Simulated scan of single mutants.
Amino acid sequence: MNLPPVSPPVLAALEQLVAVVARLRSPDGGCPWDLEQTPQSLIPYVLEEAYEVADALRRDDRGSIIEELGDLLLQVVLQSQVAQDQGQFSLEEVAQGIADKLVRRHPHVFGTVTVADTDEVRRNWEAIKAAEKGSSLPRGALIPKLQRYGQTLPPLTAATKISRKAAAAGFEWETVDGVWDKFAEEIEEFREAIAQGDTAHQQAELGDILFTLVQLARWHGLDAAEALHDTNQRFVQRLARVEALSEKPLDQQTPDVLDRLWAQAKLELQRPS
């Protein structure tokens, strides 16, 4: 297998990062904070850095992308160093494992398999993945995967992946009209739950609405998580403009004034700069 050579400066930079982290974790003069960390205590930082990378990518900010990818890379190296200190595994095993996996799952690049398009690449990936786990998706194999999505991913992302996998397995409406009918049904059931005053029931029906909205997004080729992210950004931007337009604190304004300022802010932000 012929692989392109890795640039010596890249290897040197990675080696320096590994050495810096090892020094921070050294019992002989290392950093007390780094020495106190465990795989579990570092979980919030892994999540935070991943989201900050996503934000930098959305903004297409080169400097921020470089910085945030570095912060995320630090979490990989630090987790591996902590594991090595505990006698569990090393960064070498982590890197070798993912390299081997990529080679196995790209037989059209590293082997003799021929593919027609990206859809065939995805199908091959899933088939190889199933074979690696000792399964060709027998009855019941789908459920642990869906459970894992629900446990490990942000709710909207999990709902999207669960929806897609269930649909691929045949659990799908015949047309999008059925999804719209289901959405109307869930709205009505939520209204009834609100009227009844049972909080647990209300939560369940609200969840049904959100999950059905994810189904609609999937049918129309939209990303529900991205859509909500964009709406959050627009709301904050508009509210910031309302605050700038207001002559006094927002909590001292009347609803009518706030409505007028909101409409003005929305109009101003829609105008081309």
Rank of each mutant, 00 (worst) to 15 (best):
S80G: 09
S80E: 06
Q81S: 05
Q81F: 00
Q81V: 12
V82M: 08
V82Q: 05
V82D: 00
V82S: 04
V82H: 00
V82P: 01
V82T: 08
A83C: 00
Q84T: 06
D85I: 01
D85Q: 12
Q86L: 15
Q86K: 11
G87K: 01
G87N: 04
Q88T: 14
F89S: 14
F89E: 11
F89Q: 10
F89W: 14
S90D: 04
S90C: 08
E93T: 07
V94Q: 12
A95F: 14
A95I: 14
Q96S: 07
Q96M: 05
Q96G: 01
G97T: 06
G97W: 08
I98C: 06
I98E: 13
I98K: 08
D100A: 09
D100H: 08
L102G: 04
L102M: 10
L102A: 15
V103W: 00
V103A: 04
V103G: 04
R104N: 07
R104Y: 04
H106R: 13
P107G: 05
P107I: 00
H108R: 11
F110Y: 15
F110M: 05
G111S: 03
G111H: 12
G111W: 12
V113F: 07
V113S: 06
V113H: 12
V113A: 14
T114N: 11
T114E: 11
T114M: 11
T114K: 12
V115S: 01
D117F: 05
T118I: 13
T118K: 13
T118H: 07
D119K: 14
D119I: 06
D119N: 10
D119F: 10
D119Q: 14
E120G: 01
E120F: 02
E120R: 04
V121F: 00
V121I: 15
V121E: 03
V121A: 06
V121G: 00
R122P: 02
R122Q: 11
R123F: 00
N124A: 05
N124G: 11
W125R: 04
E126C: 13
E126G: 07
A127G: 03
A127P: 01
K129A: 14
K133I: 00
K133S: 13
G134S: 06
S135I: 00
S135F: 04
S135C: 13
S135Y: 10
S135T: 11
S136E: 14
S136K: 15
P138Q: 11
P138H: 10
R139G: 02
G140P: 09
G140I: 11
A141I: 07
A141Y: 07
L142D: 03
L142N: 10
I143H: 13
I143D: 12
K145T: 15
K145A: 13
K145S: 06
K145V: 15
L146E: 07
R148N: 08
R148M: 04
R148L: 11
Y149S: 02
Y149L: 00
G150S: 02
Q151E: 15
Q151S: 12
Q151F: 09
T152M: 09
